[in-house]
Design a protein around this nucleic acid. Structure first.
Ligand code: MN
Ligand code: MN
Ligand code: ZN
Ligand code: ZN
Lengths: 139, 139
DNA sequence: GTGCTCATGAGAATCATTCTCCCACGCGGA
DNA sequence: TCCGCGTGGGAGAATGATTCTCATGAGCAC
């Protein structure tokens, strides 16, 4: 929104920092905040400036390589996801995330919009719960 | 999350400020940020402190009288909504909002969760688009 | 290797939201 | 109506995530 955007999809310059951020995201399963990622990188020695972490995440989001989720406390969380359209089923307890691509919900959203005369529609759908493993562990 | 919560649902004390916030929300159709509401109140003369606006909104949310939406820029937006479970169809252009209560999407969310062994599920579903009026005006 | 750019990092700046602290007022009881 | 208690309000400071500034460092094309 206010970050300087790369006008063209020109080749992005390579850097240790950007690679480190992407590599870390590849190892993690759930959504993580920029602050968390920064702390993790620092712990493992691949130290990267905080501003750089934000810039790398922003760039990856623009490239469609990351999904962003805004938690209720306003913090943004990022995750490496498949590039095709999907939604998420997220475990509140351990963060385990399942990507869900299911035609019915797509049709549902389109139908609801059409019934009310809305066009250019888009939808946000996230499902939160407790995964089987966490439910078992809690018992 | 960190605001002091009223432990019991005891009767809330009456006040001009709280009433003004609620009255304003009743007149508005779409989701509005706390900052916006504060500015609107100030304009109309019903001046209320910013912190008080936040406190009033928080209280109303706790009472289930308001719905909150987090926009992509991280700002929270509030709207007076019916108390029963529903989702929203929001016009990106004018903010007009339609409440949608539709069994199919509820069943969909439950099914997806069940298929993956998740329990205690909950879902966030919002549909954004351009309403008929705005689409016509743009043409 | 040189040079042109873009990337980085430290810290300042932003901005929404929350907290502190003290004062004012709603409200129930006398 | 008058008091007193305790909650609600206001102003401004504090917080915390995110973004910006700007001087410096490092890809990459030649
Ligand atoms: Mn979808
Ligand atoms: Mn629902
Ligand atoms: Zn889990
Ligand atoms: Zn509209």
């Amino acid at each position: 929104m206010s970050v300087t955007e790369q006008p063209e999809g020109g080749p992005r310059r390579q850097s240790r920092q950007r690679n480190a951020v992407l590599a870390l995201l590849d190892e993690l399963d759930g959504f993580r905040s920029a602050q968390d990622l920064h702390a993790l990188l620092r712990e493992r020695g691949d130290s990267v400036g905080l501003a750089t972490v934000y810039r790398a995440l922003q760039a990856l989001v623009d490239d469609g390589q990351l999904d962003v989720l805004r938690s209720t406390d306003g913090e943004a969380a990022y995750r490496r996801c498949s590039s095709s359209h999907h939604h998420h089923l997220v475990c509140r307890s351990c963060g385990r995330t399942v990507e869900v691509a299911d035609p019915p919900v797509e049709r549902w959203a389109a139908r609801i919009a059409a019934e009310h005369g809305f066009v250019d529609v888009q939808h946000d759908v996230e499902v939160f719960g407790t995964c089987a493993a966490c439910a078992a562990a809690r018992a």
